[in-house]
Structure formats: C-alpha cells, structure tokens
Design a protein around this nucleic acid. Structure first.
Lengths: 178, 178, 178, 178
DNA sequence: AATGAATGAGTATTCATTCAT
DNA sequence: TATGAATGAATACTCATTCAT
C-alpha cells in the first residue's frame, strides 16, 4: 500500500526476515516455485538483496529448512517435556500425531534432502531430536517405532480426503503404547 | 553419442516408452529436474516428440505417477493376496514395511500432489487400494492404522542413516498386530 | 457430440470447406493465430488433411482472402448495379459506407498483403472492381475519390468507440456527391 | 558480425532504444514477425535484456505503438497548427493526405488493436487527437469527415499500384473543403 | 487418396547469478 | 554496504511441414 520509495539502506535483521519469507514461500508454493524473485517480493526487498545475503539458492533453502526443523523439533520437545507421567506422554503423542501442522514443509524437505546432502543433515538432526524427546518417556526401541508411527499417521491424515478423527488417532497410538 | 542418423519415423508404443522414461527421470533426478528435454534424451527421441504425445508437462507427470502408483499397488496387492493365514499376512506386512522400494517416488508424488488436484486423485486411489488389500486380512480400523505404520516405517528407513534392520521392522509390526 | 470415429475417406468439397474454415478463423482470431491446426479443428478434419490439400500456409491464406475479396466485391457490385438513378447510386454508397461488414478481414488482408505479393494482387483486383462498380454511376475521378472516402468511413466507424450514425454517413457522402 | 566482446553492462536509455528497435522491426517485418529475438538483434542487446525491461511481448507492442501514434499525431498537429488561414489549412490536409508515411504501421496497429484492448486505447487516442487538430480549422462534423477521407486516401494510395498524384489528392480534398 | 505420427526450428518467458555503480 | 541493471542458459510449448503407412 505504501508508495513511499522505501529507503532502507541499513537494515540489520534483513537476512533473518529473508529466511522467514523463504519459509513462507516454500510452504505456499513449494520448493519448485521458490525463487529469488518471489522471496524478495514477499519480504519486500530488492532482488539484489537476495544474492547479497546468500551465495546461492541452496543456502537459502538450507537455512530456511534448518529454521523450520528446529522450530518443529522445539515444539515436539516442549510438548513431550511437559508430560509428567506415561499417561500424559501418551496424550502428548496423540496430540502430535493428530496435528498435521506443516507436514507439507516436512515432505518438501524430504524431497529436497534426497538430492542435497546439506539438507539430509537437517532431516537427520530433526529425526534425532524427535527420538531423544520420545526417549524421555519410552525405551529406545519403542521411541523409534512410535516416531515412525507418528510420521505415518500425520502423513496419511494430511493426504487423505477423510483424515482420521482425534479418537481414531488415539486408538492407533494407544494400541501401540498401552 | 551415437552418430547414426537414427531413422525411426514409425515407432508404435513410443508414448508408452516416454512415460517409462519420465518415471526413470523422476526417480533419478526428482520432479524439479524432470524436463521435456531430459525425458526425451533418456528415451532417445527428439524433443518435439514430447509435446506431440503430451499436451503439457503436467500430463506427463500425471501419467507417470499413475503408472507408478498402479504398479506399486499391484505389488502390494499381490504380496498380501498370496498370504493364506494371519501369520502369513503379518509376514507380508513386515516385508512391505521393510522394503523402501521407490519411497522416493512416493514422496515426490506427495509433494507434486499438494499443488495438483489431478495428482491428488492418484495418491488417494493408491491409498484406497492399499487399505483394501490390508482389509483382506484385518478389520478396517486395523487396516488403516497398519497402512499408516507401514508408511512411517518405510519413510524413516529411507531417510535414516541407520535404517531399521528387518528384525526391528518385524518387531514394530508384530507389536501392533499380535 | 458424435463419438463415432468419423470415417470420411472420400470427401469431395473438403478443400472448399477448408477455405471457408480458414476464413472463419482469420475473422475470429486474426491471421497471426491462423494455424493449420486451428483450421483443421474448425473444419473438423484431421491435421494431415491441410497439407494434403494445400502446399503451404500461404496458399491457404491466398485462397481464403481471394474468396473473401470476391464475395465482398460481388456484394458491392450488386448493390450498385441495382441503382437506376444517381440518387439511388448515392443511397447505395451511403449503405456501403455505413456497413462495417468484415472490415477486419480487409485490414488483415492489407497487412498480409504488405509482405506477400500474391496477396497484393488480390487487394488490387478488389480495388479495381470497386472502382469499376462505382464508374457505372460516376466519372472515373469521382469513382476513385468516393472509393477512398468509403474506405475511410468504414474504417473509422469500425475503430471508433462512437461510430458515425447512418445520418452522419449520409451527410459525408452527400457533401461529396451532391 | 562484430566479434568484439561488447561490454556494455551500464546502458541507461536501453529500454528506450528497445522500443525504437521494436518500431523499426514492426515497420519492416510486421507485427507477426516481431519477436524478442529480432528486436534484440536489431538493438544489438542480449535476448535476456528484452524480458528484463518488458514483462511481455504485448507490453513491447503497446509501448512501441504508443510512441508511434504520439509521433504521428504530433506531426499531424504541427502541420495543421502552422496553418494560419483556411487556405493554408487545406494545403496542410492535402499534404497529410498525400504522404503515405507509415500507413503500414497504422494498419498493423489496427489489426493488433482488434485483439488487444490496450492497443485499442492507443488508436482511439490517436483518432481523437487528429480530430482535435482538424477542429482548429473546421467545424466538428467537417473535421470528422475529413479525417476519414484522409485515412481512405492515404490507405488507397499505399495499396494501389498507381497511387494518386499530388494533384489528384488536392482535387479530392478541395472538392470536399471548398 | 488420406492421415496419424514425427520432427526440428522457433517462441515467449523465467531465473540464478554477475557486476558496475 | 546495497542494489538495479544486465545476461545467458534453460524451460515449456507451438507449429509448419515431412513422411511412412
């Protein structure tokens, strides 16, 4: 709306805002449609700014996905850390398995990671953290299995035309954990 | 590399071969790098042939993914149909959950489907068939849950640096089904 | 609507119908968008039929424009030939100058003729015939001048947002001819 | 032909030169043959420069035709504004009606405008200005009629194998205006 | 006689990246 | 430090025309 010729030669934190913008673009349009131009447009900065702050598109993606993975893992962590009993831990798992959240971003990451080792590290660290979080309440084998179950439940819910109801999710989880 | 003036004006089944080539390219390079040129190169046909047989790149992708989904579902079906007892059905599930197969193709499809309704139908039909196949041996609720579990196990195995061993997969499945 | 695999191996008059189809396409989409494919589609014949009946796109355009020019000149001729007195001749001119008819086709022809000598002959023959028709009632100098006036009036009417009313056209013509 | 590694990274006014080049190409080859490549070649700039400065071919055409229409209207205006008496005004009209100038560009514009509303505005503004210029010397009705007459005379002169002589043009105009 | 398949040249457009200012 | 201009490689797609059947 503002027509003012926005002059912002000094703008600390711009790099940061660019990463957020990138994440928004990935979520909305997909990695394939994530271009320098689009990110710059969304962040409302000149195109040249992109290559000033990042040496390549890959760097942008890596930073964006890293940020997302960290945020998602933080959430996972916190939700599980808040549980005091095994019952509460199960409740947490049901919650996490039932909220598709940004599964799309995760899947975009998986695809991108298949061709970029740098991103593979991001997914692995993420999986690592999920497992550690589950191990606060379950033995390592169970943690690993439940982690996979959650992934499958979230994924199928996101893709399905009739996603599972919360009760159905709970049923699946409890069958496993009780 | 071949300098032979390859004359192949009459080539029935070319469309078919192009779809196969597309699938190979998707698997190897990803949807993002799947271009008319690359497919034509792999199939060893002139570029113009691509747009003669398909009206758009989307059509190519849709046909390729449809073929893949059908083949994968066929395999899933056959493996489960061969099982005579519940024990054998469990063996089949363990097998299917343990073979990453072309999980990469599946994930590429999920991402592509997120932005293309035509592809969404493909994924849904595929999920449908998986569930039906499982229902030959398990009640609908179980079938649905196991389907998600398999997806999660395959996905995590493919992404992980230390994928689950067959025994670990069996353990996860049996915990659920026994 | 008919799904019948229309078999029409023997089809005299097809060439003719193709020329008509071409004319329709030119009028609707312009020469620039007049392609073999489009004409074949409109005429509901296979693409190969186009190059079977015409050796080049230029030939198609030449035939189509020739047909149109002849039809338009015929109309012009008849309208003027029907006039018995100078008064009736003036009425005829007013009529002709007031009906934009297919001026678009004419302008398309002018542009195409600028780059194709074959088409230039078509326009010249057309102009010739118009003048001859006017000479049935007016001296050669007047005929030529009125021919130009008609062209200008028709063209401006077609391009203008507020085209001249019939009365305005009559005023312009009578000022000249009375 | 020049093999010099032409370094011209900084080139203010390039957009402007591109519009001029476009106009030259349209005049020489016609809108149909006016391509990004050809314009870039004529202006001696890399192809990519075209789409940097213009978002579409339509934009190029619109800018080029606008420039041409303005220049032509300027000329028309000046020629008529210079006339002090009705006699001189008639002389001016004779001049303008007798110089085919870039009638080809005008006709190309008419055709293009038939399919592009943006261009239609250009033709309408042009016609408007012509009429206003004529109204400096003639009443509105006369101005409008003479405008059409000029158009017809110029057009027929350009298309004819034996264009009118200046005397013939004068005869036509004076018959109308005297 | 007629046509579906095939082809290669060409088109507009997009984009990551480079660079002069 | 920051950026607008510039560039060349690549992409999807169109099309007149050729050709084997």
């Amino acid at each position: 709306m503002s027509d003012a010729p926005r002059r912002r030669r000094h703008d600390p934190g711009r790099r940061d805002r660019l990463i957020d913008a990138a994440l928004r673009v990935i979520a909305e349009k997909g990695v394939a449609a994530t271009t320098h131009r689009e990110i710059a447009r969304v962040a409302d900065v000149p195109l040249g700014s992109m290559t000033y702050h990042f040496t390549s598109m890959n760097e942008v993606l890596a930073e964006a996905f890293t940020r997302h993975a960290n945020a998602a893992a933080d959430h996972f962590d916190r939700r599980l850390a808040a549980a005091r009993t095994r019952e509460e831990a199960i409740d947490a798992v049901v919650d996490l398995a039932g909220s598709p959240g940004d599964i799309l971003l995760a899947v975009e990451l998986y695809v991108a990671a298949a061709r970029d080792p740098a991103l593979r590290k991001v997914t692995q660290a993420w999986m690592q953290r999920s497992r550690r979080a589950l191990e606060q309440h379950f033995d390592p084998t169970t943690a690993r299995e439940v982690d996979a179950l959650i992934e499958g439940l979230v994924l199928h819910s996101a893709l399905s035309t009739d996603p599972m109801t919360p009760e159905q999710v709970r049923h699946a989880v409890e069958r496993y954990l009780r």
